[in-house]
Amino acid sequence: MKILVLNGSPRRNGTVASLLKSVTESLSAEHDIEWIDVCSLDMKFCTACMACREKERCILPEDDAHIVGKKIQDADALVIGTPTHWGNMSAPLKLLFDRNVSVFMGESPKGMPEPRQKGKRAVVVTACTTPWPFNFIFPESRGALRAVREVLHYGGYKIVGKITKPGTKKSNEISPSLAGKAKRLGKKLIQR
C-alpha cells in the first residue's frame, strides 16, 4: 500500500510532525510511505483561471505542485497534518490543494463535482495553540479540520479518523493517549 504523508507545518520536528510520525510508525515495512514537507515545496500561486477543470491538469508551468499532485493520484491513502492558522489549514497546504483541484475532483457534463480519488482513505492531524475547549468553541481546530475535510470530501476520500492537539502554546508534549490514538488510526488506515 502506498501512503503519502503531507506535513503542512513549517516546523519539520514540531507537534504536527510528531503526530504524523505516530500515525505512520505503527505501519509495517511492507507499506510504501513517502513524507512530503509541504512548506518546502516550490509552487506558484493558483490564478483561479479554472482551466484545470477542462484540461484535467493545472496549466501553470511545471513545479512541485504538479509532482505532488501525481503522488496524490498514485497513493492509496493520505495522512495530512496542518497547524491551525486563523481557523484554517496552513497556507502552503491550501496552495497545494488549490493547485490540484483536478486531482481531487472532476466535473460531470452537467457541471456537478465528481470525485477522482473515490474509495481511498485518509487521516487528518491538526495542532492549535488555543487551549481545550476553546479550540473547538471558537472555530480554530474545528475550522482547520473542516477545511481539510472539504477537500477530501470532494476527492471521495473516507476519513478514518482525526487527531487534534490543542494548547501547544503551553505544551507541545504528545500524551501517551494521543500517541496511542495516532497509532490506532495508522492501523485503521490500512485495514480493508
Rank of each mutant, 00 (worst) to 15 (best):
K70V: 12
E62N: 07
M89C: 08
E114P: 03
Q73F: 08
E114K: 06
W86M: 13
R116F: 01
V16H: 04
P61H: 09
T129P: 15
K110C: 09
M50C: 10
G87C: 06
A65L: 07
A17L: 06
D98I: 00
S22G: 11
E25A: 12
W86T: 12
G81F: 05
V103H: 00
S18Q: 15
A127E: 12
E62A: 08
C52Y: 00
W86L: 13
P92L: 02
M50Y: 15
E107T: 11
L60R: 13
P92S: 01
E30K: 12
V16Q: 02
P139A: 10
C128M: 11
P61M: 09
V79K: 05
M105G: 03
A75P: 03
A51R: 11
I36D: 01
D98T: 04
P61V: 13
M43H: 04
T82K: 02
M50H: 12
S22L: 04
L93R: 04
A29R: 12
R121W: 06
E30D: 15
W86A: 13
H31E: 06
C39D: 15
V38W: 09
I80C: 02
N13Y: 07
A91T: 08
S22I: 00
A51M: 10
F97D: 01
L27T: 09
S26D: 06
F45R: 07
E56D: 13
D42Y: 03
P115N: 03
A75S: 09
M105D: 01
I137C: 03
V16N: 07
L20M: 00
T84D: 04
N100M: 05
D76E: 11
A122D: 02
K21V: 04
H85L: 11
R53L: 14
P92H: 02
V23R: 05
T15D: 01
